[in-house]
Design a binder for these strands. Structure first.
Lengths: 222, 222, 222, 222
DNA sequence: AATGAATGAGCCTTCATTCAT
DNA sequence: GATGAATGAAGGCTCATTCAT
């Protein structure tokens, strides 16, 4: 019985295998070469499957790209954790958000191509970015970040001003993802490991909370 | 003088015309489509010149790309001068720095494709980024930003910590260049004109000064 | 007998179902797209069966095509019988022949694709045309048409001349099968129903009988 | 000078050469294999030119096909002659039309593929047939054939009846083009040379004029 | 310096077919 | 007998580049 079940399971594995192999190989190639630069042949060869498999499992090269990018960027789970562990204190909540966001963006355990692909997509958007923003970033911003900031500032600021503050925080975080080529050129021996991520996240949290506290104080004064 | 000007001018109008038209058209097309996405034909058609002209004037599509990117990124070290206008007050200096940096990044007088091409280059760097960092960003950071921050914080922070603060500021600024595709999707009717740049720069300045002030206060306290 | 019928009938319903569905769908698709234009997938999808079924039931796409064409063209030699109804008057016999021939060619009760496929086959013949000519057209011409014409003209004309007259009649009839695409473009709202067939057949009969009568008169005169 | 003119002319010949070579080769291949069956590679190989030349000189495989078919079927010139030599007698005019039409359709000096391609196109129409009918057949019918028939019949018949008579004539002529595969199977040693064409045309003319005369007589009687 | 016809490599995709289940 | 994932061959087309002029 066990053997038969293995036999029955085998095709599922084999089936998922081809698809999965393509997805992995495609991620790497797209990250290295971009959408136009990558060729279906390069992807299928790296995956060790037939050229036609891409068009069979995904309709298109474009559809494959979308699938890969969306998979690579589904930041959402990271925020779920952040909320789940959420305390009542908005300061703690912001700290948690920033840490989870940075850990997600920079996680050295995630395959490197996912980071690079996400950075590439943000700079040279295709239709995949639409989905990414709508499903991941927009909710993150509207449901977690902005409400938390509103709570932190006690209603002193307009929606527009809260937007700017949000941008300041996201900008600080994304800098370490998107500007990595710049950072590597500014600080030649730059590496990021687990402890660095914590250090960076701590800095951004402190910096942002300090700014918010001081700005709020100023706003209340006037 | 007159003779030299004639010599210099004549070829620019006649001989250099084709070359210049190609460079302009190539900038736009490369910015829109990326290197692989852009076709030599699209470039030459937009330039109104023969297809073969690209291979004649530049050896390669690749060579043309390098030329275009270098031109687009090494704008001028002019913003150094602007910074030199700095007053004695370090707060004023920081404000001025941020404004000049943002104006440099987002300058609406520069053709839009140069900005987009620069953003592209930052995310998917070629050799042209080396030059950009070395000539523009590195000096900005090391000669102006960090020293100003040191002055502002009264020596409370290590070089490493000052580096982080610098990153926070650069991150906030670069966000509006690099993450524009995201911003445009988050805020559908987003436009940046002269007054917006000022508003953004003002926010980043206030936010950063507030953070620095508060952080410094905290550091002194302990 | 009963047993044999059961044997024959059961498989037709169960086992032959797929085969029959393929044959029907293939006929339609081949008629619309031609052999090369038709895809196995289009056929199997329209038939609602698996892609592999074509290669299972028929060896080949080519084999399937042959099967379909032969079925479509070897309708029945039934119109021989209809012709046998002929009266003694040769005029009546010719009228009857033309009507039966046109009804055979244009029969609106046969699925449209069979007509179209037959027209296709006549212009771009495969081996199936041999059978069609041998079983249907040849006998029609040699056993009915030519003898009737000989009778009508009272032996005034050589076999060669009778052949030309036969061609004139067949040409007039086949025109409405083979040149339908042209007719539809010349007379945009062209349709053929039962009564049109009668009208067309009447015209061809009148036209041909008139020609024969006049030609015979001229031949006798000289 | 003469030599230089030759030199100057050479490219024109060379230029026309590739295009012309493609058109010729395409005609043969399309006639043999049909549109879908023919491959661009087969065409360019037979023409001895590069594969890409098809897409350069014609936009498409489809566009090439249209060009080839239209070129192969521009029957118009044939009718021009017919009118040019036209006498006042409508009988003579009809005789001339039929002769020119058949000479055009069956001309053994025209490359065989033109005949076969035209027959193919009439049976399996593509968009090329639209152009063919509009530019060649429609005018032939409306400007020459029908008016001539009206003159011949002295206004005895309705437009619809004249249309049927026209069909009878065209059907007789086209039979020898479109039904050639049938004819070859009916009359195994069938060949058409110059004198056969004349004989056929003479028969059709006599047959049709006889029918028209007799029909007109009948119509006047009643 | 500039042209445009011509090239060959290579890309994405589709197709008929096979094979394990 | 039927399925559907997988294959390899080939197809149409586009691209950067070259060459004669």
């Amino acid at each position: 019985m066990v053997i038969r079940e293995n036999k029955a399971a085998a095709p599922e594995i084999a089936e998922e295998n081809t698809r999965a192999k393509i997805l992995n190989a495609a991620g790497e190639v797209f990250a290295e070469q971009g959408f136009e630069g990558a060729t279906v042949r390069a992807i299928t060869e790296r995956a060790g499957v037939n050229v036609a498999a891409v068009n069979y499992h995904f309709r298109d090269k474009a559809e494959l790209y979308t699938r890969v990018v969306v998979d690579a960027c589904s930041v959402r789970a990271a925020f779920r954790e952040a909320i789940a562990e959420g305390t009542d204190s908005p300061e703690e909540r912001l700290r948690s958000l920033i840490h989870r966001f940075l850990e997600y963006l920079l996680d050295p355990n995630r395959p490197g191509w996912k980071r690079r692909l996400m950075a590439r997509e943000m700079a040279n958007p295709t239709t995949a970015l639409d989905e990414l923003v709508k499903n991941n970033i927009q909710p993150f911003r509207d449901e977690f970040l902005i409400p938390t900031l509103r709570q932190l500032t006690g209603g002193c600021f307009s929606r527009r001003q809260l937007g700017y503050i949000g941008s300041s925080i996201m900008g600080q975080c994304l800098y370490f993802l998107q500007s990595r080529p710049i950072i590597e050129r500014l600080v030649p021996d730059f590496k990021i490991d687990k402890s660095d991520i914590t250090e960076i996240a701590d800095h951004i949290t402190r910096f942002s909370l300090a700014a918010i506290a001081e700005l709020t104080r100023q706003a209340r004064r006037s």
